[in-house]
Every structure is written in structure tokens, then in C-alpha cells.
Design a protein around this nucleic acid. Structure first.
Lengths: 144, 144
DNA sequence: TTTATATAGTACTAATATAGTACCGTTTGA
DNA sequence: TCAAACGGTACTATATTAGTACTATATAAA
């Protein structure tokens, strides 16, 4: 239903939590505790986010994870791309040649436009906006 | 990967084809032929679109399907909602009480804003835009 | 140098959703 | 009356997602 995966959903929750203390280093266990999610799940999540450059990690005692960039420079688009791969509403908008209709299809380029617009909207929401308590603020921002 | 289902994808192709002859009544077989998709699949698709008011149907010999509204009044948002249910990027944005984190979650309302923005973008693309050959036209439109 | 802590990588199972198809019933025009 | 065409539903196979566990490696502190 045009839904992000649960892992992505969790990702935004976890990253938003981290954004409240952007300098702090969190262990997976501490984060799981803070957002009330299973440790295994949070661990998986953090690994992926690290691999995609949104987090820095440090092993060993006193190790943990830290935001790789200031919160205002980590967007929903970044998070979704890290956890779900490149955004593409249709198969054909993601990669050429997968769709057998491609030759006869007249609407491929239009889907690509739509993708770009949605990407733009998601890119304009950073962890800072995500964290902002009151609503309607981000909306205003997004519609510029 | 933030992707619409194949059925939705097919739906846009089929409806775009119908929009090229907005007054014409198409049988499922004729449409399937026109867009090179299996008849069974197209049949399923048309039934759902009819149930959701995007098409009018007529049974019997000489029966078939017809756009229920002028093409400029049928949007991607309509199509996606018909085939995938109400748009909601996260579970919680769709319905209250599903997510156990809700009480402790600070970003629910932000997701709702994001949904609205994406809905708006999809609502602004009608079958007419979808059909328009050259690209970058819809983009300009969408960013207003 | 040893040990406890913490991440990295991977693999696996279960549950869910999607894709695709078929069948039977009903309506309607010729 | 018959054939064309939609309506509803059910079913199977496949793919994806969700959740979890296990082993290896790195690091800081004792």
C-alpha cells in the first residue's frame, strides 16, 4: 500500500532518537532500550545504516554508533534508500529492461518524473524536521 | 522499495490506454490485447477499478468498461488508492493503535505530513499528464 | 595479556503479501 | 435461446518482509 518496510519505519524512530543527542555514542542495546524495540532488530538496522554511511560505528568496549552527519543533513530519502534501495515507484523506473512492455509503454518517463518529485519531498525532511514536535511545520516547508 | 504493486503499475498502463479514447467502451479482452497483458490479469484489474468508481461497466454482449470521469479527473492518487488501499507510508499513519510504540513515538505526526505531501504530488498527476509524451512537463507542474 | 563489551557478517525460519490464474454465476443484446 | 461479457471468489505459487540467532572480529580497560 505504498508503504515503507517496518525496518525503515524503525530506522526513522531510531535515528530521530539519536538526533536528540547528536554527539552521543549509543550502543545498540541502549538504543533498543530507548525506543522500546527488540535488540536484535535494532542491531540489524544499525548495521545497515552504518554500511550506507548514515552512521559511524566503533567496536569494542565503549563502542557504539554515532550519526555520521549533523541531523539536518540526514533526510528521509537517505534513510529509505539505505534500507530499501533506490527509490522507484515502478519496476521500470528503477531499471531498464525489466519490463516487457517497455517498448510499447508510453508512460515510463512520466513515472520517472513522479519518482523525482517524491524523492524531492522526502529529501526535504531531515531528522530535525522529523523531531520537531508540532505538525504543519514540515508541511509548509515541503510545499515550497 | 517504496514501490507500487504490479497490479497498480498495470492499472496505470491500462487506464492511460483508455484515456486515449475516453468515450470508447473497451472489453477486457480488447484492452488486454492493446496493452499486451494477460487477459485474466486485466480482468481482475478492471473489476477493482470499477468497484472503486474509476470505471463504469456494462455487462452482456457489447458490454465493457468506460472511464467513469474525464481523464483529467483521474489521478495517480486515485489509482493507487483504488488498487492498494489508503496511502500511508507507515503503519501508524494509516491507522491508530496498530503500533505499540505510539505512546512513546515522537514522529507520528511528521509522517502524516509526509504522507499528505506525497498524496498531493500523486493527486496532481492525472491520466492526461501520464499520457503526455515528453517528459519534464509534469515535473514543472508538480513543483508548483 | 586477558577479559568483557560491542559491532560485523551471515544464515535461517516463519509469516505475510503479491502475482497470477481459474472457475462459476449473472447480465444483456442479438 | 445463446453467446459475449462482466462480477465474485477462491486457490496456488512465489517473493518479500520480519524476526532471530550464531560466529567472528575489534577494542578498551583491568
Amino acid at each position: 500500500m505504498l508503504r515503507v518496510s517496518k525496518l525503515t519505519d524503525y530506522g526513522t524512530v531510531v535515528l530521530a532518537r539519536m538526533a536528540r543527542e547528536p554527539e552521543r555514542t549509543f550502543s545498540a542495546a541502549a538504543l533498543a532500550e530507548a525506543v522500546a524495540l527488540p535488540v536484535s532488530t535494532v542491531r540489524k538496522l544499525l548495521k545497515v545504516l552504518t554500511r550506507h554511511g548514515l552512521l559511524n560505528s566503533c567496536r569494542g568496549q565503549q563502542g557504539g554508533y554515532q550519526l555520521a552527519r549533523p541531523p539536518q543533513r540526514i533526510s528521509l530519502a537517505d534513510i529509505i534508500e539505505a534500507l530499501e534501495g533506490p527509490l522507484g515507484l515502478t519496476e521500470c523506473s528503477f531499471q531498464h529492461g525489466l519490463c516487457q512492455l517497455e517498448a510499447r509503454c508510453h508512460i515510463r518517463s512520466q513515472w520517472q518524473d513522479v519518482n523525482q518529485v517524491i524523492y524531492g519531498a522526502l529529501a526535504r525532511v531531515s531528522l530535525v524536521e522529523l523531531l520537531a514536535k508540532p505538525s504543519n511545520k514540515s508541511i509548509a516547508l515541503l510545499n515550497t
